[in-house]
Each structure stands twice: as C-alpha cells, then as structure tokens.
Design a protein around this nucleic acid. Structure first.
Lengths: 341, 341
DNA sequence: TGCCACTATGTAAAGGTTTACATTGCGTAT
DNA sequence: ATACGCAATGTAAACCTTTACATAGTGGCA
C-alpha cells in the first residue's frame, strides 16, 4: 500500500505496522507457537498489507547457510543430464533449496572457478556428477573437513562421499543374460574408452552374466569411446576379422546407436542379423529404427535420492548410506532378436 | 595455518594478521589503487596465509544484490534446453554470476514458488524460456517495475522484456525455399498445436517462402503437436486423403522424426519418395536414418547473448536492444531429395 | 613558518535478519 | 500476602561486509 519508497518492505516495516517489535515478527513467522494468537494475527495482517518477504541475504548471513546447492557436471549436453537434473531440482525445490548449475567441461580451471561459490558460502553443498572431487578449499591449506557432498551417476573414491546411481553390474548382467536367453553365444561388449569406471562396472556385469550361462561363453571386448561415432568405428574395425559376434552389449545407448548404424551401412539388418542392446535409455532410444532395446537408468529417481541425501546431511539429520544402487529396468524394444540358424 | 577454530577466516582475521583495519583490507581487495603499495602487500600476504574468501552473503546483503540469476523453463527435458543452458552458464560464469535452475513444468504453482527467489532478493534477474511473464511481486500489490528479465527462445509480450532467439520466419522461409529449389511444389507444413507462437512464426516463414516461388504454390498445413508422436499421427491422418504432398516442412525435429518414421512404416523411402525437413537440429538429428536435414538453431549463442543482455542490464550498462534474432543455418543431410518424375 | 591539498588509514554506520537474554505481567501455590 | 513459574514480548548482539566520513600525516607553496 503506502510503502514509503520503492524499496521492498523489511521486517521493521511490518513490526511498526503491527505495533510490535521485530523480534516478535520474526517469531510469528518462524516459531508461531511462541507468540500469542492475537499478536500473530496482527503480524499476519501487517505482512499481507506490506507484501513483506524476508530478505534471504540477511537470513543467510545470520544463519550461516544459503539454502542453495551446486550441481557440478562435466557436460550439460550429456543425454543423461537433464533427467537427473529434473530429479535434483524437484527434490531441492520441495525443501526450499535452490539448484545452481556448474558446467566444468572436464577442465580443472572451470571446476576451481565454481568452487568460489562454496568457499564464499554461496552454496551449502555439492552434487557431483563429475566422478571426482574438485579441489576444495584454499590450495595452500586445503580444508580438513569436506563440505556436504553426494556423488551421483559416477562414483567418487572418498570415504566421506556417498554415491547414488544405477546398479551397473547387476543391470549389465541382466542385459547379458537376456542376450543369452535369446540364444546368443558370441556376445561382444563394446566398452567406452579405457579408464572409464562406469564402463568397467558394466563390463564386470557382462562378464558375470557370461559366467553364469549354462555353457561356457568367452569374453569379447571391443573398444568404443562412449559416443555413437566410437561405436561406428568399433564395428568398422571389427569387420577386418573373419569371425563376428552375433550380439553386442554396448556401454551406452550412444554407442549402440553407432553400432546399429554401422551394421546397417554394411547392409546387415538389426535384429535379424545382429542383436544390439544399449544402456541408459536416453530419450531417443525409442526414436531410432529399430527402436533400441536397452537398460533404463532411473535418472529422475537418482537425482531425487541424491538431493534427498544431501539435504538430509545439511540439516544434520540422518547418517547417510554410503552407496545406493538403483535397479535398472530392461526395456525390450526391437533391436534384439533370437539367434537364428 | 593456525586459524583459531574451524570457522572460515573473516576479513577481521586478515586485518589483524596484516596489522590494519578491516576497511583497509576491503579496499585492498576491491579498490587496490586506494591503498599504499606496502600495505597492499601485507594484506595480500595475510589473505594468502589465512586462505580468506569474502563471505558472499555479507557482501550481498551489504551491496543489495546477489550475483545470481534464475533460468525459468517449462521443461528441462526439452531437447533445446541443454544447448541454451550451456550458453547461459558460460556467459554468467565469465562475469562471476551463478545460474539457478527453475523448472516450472508449465504449472503456475511451481512458477510462483520459484518467484520467492526473486522476491527474497536471492536472484537479481530472470531468463525466461517459458514464453510468458510469471506472476511477480505480491499478488495483492504487484510490483510496479519489473525486475531485469530477458526472454530467450520464446518471446514474451511485454514492452520491457527483450527477446533473443533464432529468426524463425527467415529460417523457415529459407527451409521452404530449399524444398522448392529441389523441385517440390506440394509442400506441407506440419505445425505444432495451435496457440504455439513459435509454430505460427515458422508457418509465416513457410508461407512467405511459398509466396516468393516462381509459380504459385498453395499452402498446406497439417496439425502436429510438437512431438514425434504428433508427427506420426499427423501422417497417419494424412493417408486418408487421396492426394499427398511430396515434401514436409516440420515445426521441429521431433515432429520430423515422427513424420519420417510414419512414412517408413508405410513402406515409403525418405528422401526418395518424400522429402522431410525439420527445425532445431537437436543432437539426434544426425543419428537417425536418414540423417535429418534441418535448420540449426544457434542454441549456445542464444544463451550467451541473452545472459549478456541480462547482466548488462544488471550493471546498469547499455540500453538493451528489444529483439535480437539470430540467423539459423540450413543443415543439409539426407532427408531431402529432388522431386522425381 | 604556516597553511593547504592530498594520500593513507581508521571509525562507525548500515544492510535485514535471528535469537540469547532481560523484562513484564499474571496466575498459582504456600 | 509473598514468592515462584511461566508465557509473551522487548532489547540488543551477532552474522560479515562496504563505504561515507573523520583523522592523521606528508609535501609543497606562499
């Protein structure tokens, strides 16, 4: 109404209007049971009249927290990222937290740059999608105790950092078993480049799946790089040999798409001539021909749980479980078929 | 070093160590030319020793800003979103700003909820990807002056809100002309649902392209809904008629992918039997068969420019241009071919 | 020598909250 | 009637900066 200037209303304006002290206003908002019913009503009315919203900066300064967390990722363009972000944002929003985006592009300098949000107290905690700890604290005297951090999608090797992700080993085993159940006995794993821990885990699952087959099946690893181009190239190299697998379990959907494309270019049909299974269930898996059979990663849920853990930790609540692996669903579409002959 | 508690160093710690007042420390950091060379060195040394980082909350409170902006989007899962976010984040980061994500899912309640960041002073400005103004300020006494806002990708009808996006009309005209140049004379536009302003703009471009053809070409609009499913359904409905277009200009790539898929299911070949062109150049356009010919939207650049405008506005710099339309490139791949016969 | 201008620094207020502690007033038990 | 406890409220400190204003010191100039 007749707010003096254009300046937003402060707690003082409310107090004056309600005829109480600012402490009472604050209590009326934060701990209503501590103020008399009648006063509370006056305060509520005054707040409505002034359109008061507490200044978050002042609150944050006083309370030594920001209600803000940062999500660090190597690449916003990663097809898994949006789904995870949706979950993260949802969970954070429900508890009144804000989500800050930090794109590192895999570089240390950007990563360090983002850390100023942490050291300046602008964010209370970190969600790491990067797979490694950033350099945190002043280089010369790194802080002794880590800030609250949760790793998602890609684990971090540090005892104080919990991890939320899909069960890579179990899901890969499931995918492999599915191919075996279709009659395939020559099954190749198309990996991501070396030194990719997730690819290694999926390979472990693949190996376990083979190991549990009724008859012995030999491992067969083909080197991709996690991209569809890499998948394509891997298949090209493969055709130099004289024996071929009949099925491909790919590190991810991108790779699988490249593999299918390379096979089709050679004139082969999927799934009639070769079966291909991916991992992730990225949005486009359903839009290629043939529609890709794959393992669905529960991205949104991963985000929600990771953020839940982080916020629990921030409010000093529960002790956080160290590793949470979510079940990945097998999504059967069209790219796998029975081994013929 | 021997920092008393675990508490991060404050400006006072630095001042004590350097043997100066906190005002001098502040000046040494923010306006170095105002302090003597010798003192500046002492301060710098003290900062290094203590690992001091200014508390952002205190700064923000004092300076009445947050160096934080919020990006409001209907859907994080929109295939155009990551590219834009990359640009937004990059530009913001370069100027020391943080980017907050606000996912509205198209609902008013979430939108309102996000506005608390604005009213509480947690963010200094807004990037709107939603295509409309959020309800800002207290409902009962809505603020008179809008906060700094830039719309990107989807314009907002308000004289104080600048817009950055691709030149939908021009690019669509270009796409249409390309189809005409291939010899097509029966060209349909597969729209998004009604009441989509972007779809309308692209249709305008399509109509202009037809209008400038050497011979008269009649408009032909088919109703999609912006999804690949919608594109598929549109084609199915089309086959009820006895005459068919020879080329399709689609509202977006998703639609185009659905169109191609429906055509292929009917046994037709693209581009031999029908030409299809999309819009956006989403990441997967290159991975479908046939690779999609489309108009590339300069997403990253749109993000960078939009954020640049916003931050310029925040620092009270230049008057902001009202509408900035970026050129979209025609990306010729495999889904369009000459009209045969 | 005395004064002025200017530089370098310090003092203290302001920014808007939250909350420990102090105060007031009232009902109840002795 | 006195004292005690409790509920409701107020006072003021603390959170950590930035910056207007005050002060001190220095060199130059008349």
């Amino acid at each position: 109404m007749n707010r003096s200037a254009d300046r937003p209303a402060t707690i003082e304006d409310v107090a004056k209007l309600a005829g109480v002290s600012i402490a009472t206003v604050s209590r009326a908002i934060r701990t209503p049971r501590k103020v008399a019913e009648s006063t509370r009503k006056k305060v509520t009315a005054a707040i409505a009249r002034t359109g008061y919203t507490a200044n978050a900066m002042a609150q944050n300064l006083r309370m030594q927290r920001s209600r803000m967390v940062m999500v660090l990722t190597q690449s916003i363009a990663d097809p898994n990222f949006p789904g995870i972000l949706i979950g993260l944002e949802k969970a954070a929003n429900e508890l009144g937290y804000g989500v800050l985006i930090g794109n590192t592009e895999g570089t240390v300098s950007l990563e360090e740059n983002h850390m100023r949000f942490l050291s300046s107290g602008m964010v209370d905690g970190l969600i790491l999608l990067t797979g490694h700890l950033p350099v945190v604290g002043h280089p010369k005297n790194p802080i002794s105790t880590l800030p609250p951090i949760i790793a998602a999608t890609c684990p971090v090797s540090h005892k104080d950092v919990s991890y939320v992700g899909v069960d890579d080993v179990g899901s890969s085993k499931m995918a492999t078993e599915y191919l075996i159940s279709l009659g395939h006995r020559k099954i190749a794993y198309v990996s991501s480049g070396s030194s990719n821990p997730i690819s290694d885990l999926r390979q472990v699952g693949y190996v376990r799946g083979l190991a549990e087959a009724a008859e012995p099946i030999t491992e067969w690893r083909i080197e991709g790089d996690g991209s569809s181009e890499g998948g394509r190239a891997a298949i090209e190299r493969l055709f130099i040999k004289d024996t071929l697998p009949t099925a491909f379990f790919c590190y991810n959907d991108d790779t699988a798409i490249g593999v299918i494309s390379a096979l089709q270019i050679r004139g082969y049909r999927v799934p009639e001539d070769f079966s291909v299974i991916g991992f992730d269930d990225i949005p486009f898996s359903n839009n290629i021909t043939p529609a890709l059979t794959t393992v669905r990663q529960p991205r949104k849920k991963i985000g929600e749980i990771a953020m839940g853990y982080l916020l629990d930790g921030l409010s000093g609540e529960a002790p956080i479980p160290h590793e949470t692996l979510l079940h990945g669903d097998l999504v059967v579409r069209e790219s796998c078929g029975p081994k013929l002959t």
